[in-house]
């Protein structure tokens, strides 16, 4: 499958680039989060499976993967909430979960929850005290996340979106160098998603922190992130700049019969895409000649359409490619 090979090639190239900069010396890159051989098992369930991942400092890094891929487990290990079964995780070079590394990190893991008897103002005050940040401008932060009007309401009366916004204030108000946001828009309506996305962008720009963002919203990731890693079943299956993963060559999707004859004509440039379609990895100017060749060979063409490359299809392709590999 040519397109997957190109993804693998891109991934390998990216990993080589990462390896190059990881070598000691003047070009050594600093990493916000490093995982080396990280494994976490819950009974028979392997949430992380020998995961090695390096997230460079700076910019917005997306972590993608289906439910159960291990994203939250990775973040919980990084924040010291969960102990790995084996392997190590480091935050900015310090062991993950240690007070020294956590002082520079803010995290919102899944939907934030607060003691129900606290107002938003109280919750931020309590978290500021807990962090030893005595000079935090709580009113200013409530204003930045649009909660001034509800500052003295108990958080138990807040909507999911309001809790997320308060969570973002709690992440950023200690001025972290790294912010981990685990599905910050989950459970929100489209307007709320848009609002939070804008807020993350703004805070990232204003605060200058490295942001690691896990999300199921691929459009969100495409718009916000510079680089992404895709996890599946606790393993890293792809990693690289968003445009590298999403910007593969477009493919011509041909619904035709008989399909085996189509695939024979396409040779190495073709791959089946379902029971009645083929994907042709060709350049746009090659399409008319291909169509003529297929018609000349007696193939009935029902539909021929260019499938544009995007992060979503790349993501699905990568995950589908992972499935047969697992089955083997």
């Amino acid at each position: 499958m040519a397109d997957l090979r190109s993804i693998a090639h891109s991934r390998d190239k990216f990993i080589r680039e990462s390896s190059d900069v990881a070598e000691p010396g003047p070009r050594r890159m600093s990493y916000a989060l490093e995982a080396e051989g990280l494994t976490k098992t819950y009974g028979a369930v392997r949430a992380l499976d020998d995961l090695t991942l390096r997230i460079p400092a700076g910019g917005v890094f997306g972590v993608l993967g289906p439910n159960g891929a291990g994203k939250s487990t990775l973040f919980r290990i990084a924040m010291g909430l969960v102990r790995p079964s084996s392997g190590v995780a480091r935050l900015s070079g310090s062991p993950a979960g240690h007070a020294s590394s956590l002082r520079r990190v803010g995290a919102m893991i899944e939907t934030p929850r607060y003691p129900p008897y606290l107002t938003a103002r109280d919750a931020l005050k309590m978290l500021a005290l807990q962090s030893g940040a005595h000079d935090v401008d709580i009113d200013g932060w409530l204003d930045r996340v649009g909660l001034t009007g509800a500052a003295d309401r108990k958080t138990s009366t807040y909507s999911v979106g309001m809790k997320q916004r308060l969570g973002l204030a709690a992440v950023f108000f200690t001025r972290p160098t790294l912010a981990i946001l685990d599905e910050p828009t989950s459970g929100m309506d489209p307007a709320g998603i848009q609002e939070i996305r804008e807020l993350i962008r703004r805070l990232a720009a204003e605060e200058g922190a490295t942001i690691i963002l896990a999300s199921h919203q691929l459009d969100e990731v495409r718009r916000v992130c510079d680089r992404v890693a895709i996890l599946a079943k606790g393993k890293l299956v792809a990693e690289g700049p968003v445009e590298t993963l999403a910007g593969r060559k477009p493919a011509l999707r041909i619904v035709a019969s008989p399909l085996p004859q189509v695939l024979q004509i396409l040779g190495e440039q073709g791959a089946a895409d379902g029971p009645d379609a083929a994907l042709a990895q060709i350049e746009r100017h090659e399409a008319p000649a291909l169509i003529r060749a297929l018609v000349g060979a007696g193939v009935d063409i029902h539909e021929a359409r260019w499938r544009e490359a995007d992060l979503e299809s790349a993501y699905l392709d990568i995950l589908q490619a992972k499935e047969p590999a697992d089955a083997r």
Binding site: G80, A99, V105, P112, R113, Y114, L127, Q130, S131, A170
Partner: peptide, 9 residues
């Protein structure tokens, strides 16, 4: 709410 507190202290 432990996940809110443990990363801070």
């Amino acid at each position: 709410t432990w996940r809110l507190l443990t990363p801070r202290n």
